[in-house]
Write a protein that binds this DNA or RNA. Structure first.
Lengths: 233, 233
DNA sequence: GATTTAATTTACCAACTGGTCAATTGACGA
DNA sequence: TCGTCAATTGACCAGTTGGTAAATTAAATC
């Protein structure tokens, strides 16, 4: 039951006059690669600001093209969003980080400082923080993958290295208290990004000092938490 | 230039037959207060799940009323959202918390434990966490007020009490490092709610232990951070 | 039991939104 | 300079969405 006339009237010819509304910079013909690059970069900025529900028309207007052009480069909105995910999240994870953390020729505190200072350059950005949260709200494709990365590749490593640093055996699986101590440090750092990019506050003036203080706080608590016997049950 | 017929055709009479789609529980006539209560409760649940952009029609369907009824009780969607804010955020803030923190007959660590265990019962809920973030995305009416509460009434108190506990003078304004140490603890706790209600993970089994460990981590780092001379900017 | 009235619903509007298609046009090679 | 063709656009579709007005009806009052 189509609410309007079901038969499609013949398409009209384009009129030569342009309405004031449609006034835009004159058509520019770019190479396929250039335009795609422009669209992806625009989408990263746009979606990080307006959320994944932002309108494709508005995105197109910001890039200064018409919105059907987006559909020439991407089959649909979802494909564009997946592309954004790949660029921002997969593209910014460094496997170096994992080797840094395991380099026992350096004290653990220094290793963690080095890691978190570099890691923060990736995650304390508008795109990372906001797209991550938007994605979690939109169903979790991005955030699930990101959390998997954290809990499979990062947290167990830090548990193992902390135990080694404290002269404890490293075989047993991590306890909840151990993991949570790390989540506490990690969450405290991510929260800097939330304050900046979700709540709109300022970064601390001396960000690196804040990061190393978070690590220091972890190192001070670790001996107590890690040597406490695992909670019964 | 109205896209459809500009003259309004005469309103049709209601038909006696009900379409299968519209099948709903028979009309129920509640008192003004009951229905309003029902709408507000429904809105809190609904907006915390679907975001503040969730459709009023869908909300109405969940409550099992038609959506114009919502507009009988609230002038527009925004008013309903503001009501939700008042119920969830203003309604759950206890001024007791502020006095607990200042009760110097108890060691600071115990005071903070008590506060955060109770505070967490309010903030580590689906409604609190998700509506707070949704609101920040939607313009910040809720989150601005909440952050103001934190940075005016909570953080300075904890700075002062920590200095007192450490035998330091309490007059000078908080330094960035002091405030950030608290933000670290606070953010680490809020992050538990993010993991649960944004990312969809589980709560830790022993939540209270995790909370007291976060506080403990703060207490262990405080002597070092609070006695360090303020950074020479 | 008839009347009243406030709670509730049906039907509708107009702007928005993802997506499609045929027409248009800029640039490059012949 | 003239075709050619891919990049680009205008016009359109159909479903969605916040909001409104008039009709309907359950329950309280007389």
């Amino acid at each position: 039951m189509p609410p309007r006339s079901p038969v499609r009237p013949p398409r009209q010819r384009h009129s030569a006059v342009k309405s004031a509304k449609t006034a835009r910079a004159p058509r520019q013909r770019l190479s396929n690669e250039e335009r795609e690059r422009q669209i992806v970069d625009g989408a990263i900025r746009f979606f990080s600001e307006h959320g994944l529900t932002g309108q494709t028309r508005e995105l197109a207007a910001r890039i200064n093209v018409t919105h059907p052009l987006l559909y020439h480069y991407f089959p649909n909105k979802e494909a564009l969003i997946k592309r954004v995910y790949k660029e921002v999240f997969l593209g910014r994870w460094k496997s170096d980080w994992e080797t840094w953390i395991e380099d026992r020729s350096v004290p653990l505190q220094e290793r963690l400082n080095r890691f978190y200072i570099d890691y923060s350059k990736a995650i304390l950005t508008k795109e990372w923080v906001r797209i991550l949260i938007f994605s979690a709200f939109a169903g979790g494709y991005i955030s699930d993958n990101y959390l998997k990365l954290l809990s499979e590749r990062l947290l167990p490593r830090i548990v193992r290295e902390t135990r080694a640093e404290l002269g404890l055996p490293t075989e047993k699986p991590p306890t909840e208290a151990e993991l949570e101590l790390i989540w506490g440090m990690h969450g405290g750092i991510f929260y800097i990004g939330v304050r900046r990019w979700i709540y709109g506050l300022k970064f601390p003036k001396d960000l690196n000092r804040v990061l190393t203080d978070r690590v220091r706080s972890y190192m001070l608590a670790a001996p107590e938490i890690f040597t406490r016997e695992a909670a019964p049950h």
